[in-house]
């Protein structure tokens, strides 16, 4: 199942970037990574990814703030965003859903294959 869908992973932990990069590239995706919100928004605007995986705890800012910025920008508004986090707080989940995230996933509850499946499902 090869496809050339582009994924933007906004995540501050390098080990996790490496892991997800390996899995998604193996599945034929193109994975772009950003280590903080600013970089992530720039990448989202220039690369126009098909989907964004956004961590909730980022360097110096909350993923929710980044999500707000993504959703208020005409260029990035329509890109589906999946929140990917280890902070399983109900209010965070509600807040992200209200802001337009398509899903809120706790990293420890899924494996990389599950995530690939979820992304594929989202991209149709």
């Amino acid at each position: 199942m090869t496809n050339t869908c582009k994924i933007l992973l906004i995540e501050d932990d390098q080990d996790q970037i490496n892991m997800y990069r390996f899995k998604f590239e193996k599945e034929g995706f193109v994975l772009i990574s950003a280590r903080n919100g600013g970089e992530g928004i720039t990448a989202a605007r220039s690369e126009k990814p098909d989907i964004i995986l956004l961590d909730l705890i980022l360097v110096n800012e909350s993923g929710v703030e980044v999500l707000k910025k993504l959703k208020s920008d005409d260029v990035t508004r329509d890109i589906p965003v999946i929140m990917l986090t280890n902070l399983a707080k109900k209010e965070m989940k509600l807040q992200s859903e209200r802001l337009g995230a398509v899903d809120f996933i706790v990293k420890t509850q899924i494996t990389p294959s599950d995530l690939v499946r979820r992304v594929n499902q989202e991209l149709g």
Partner: peptide, 14 residues
């Protein structure tokens, strides 16, 4: 606590 677990679990499942 979950941060290392997610990597351990992810790599092992792969």
């Amino acid at each position: 606590l979950r941060t290392p677990v997610s990597v351990i679990k992810g790599v092992i499942s792969m």
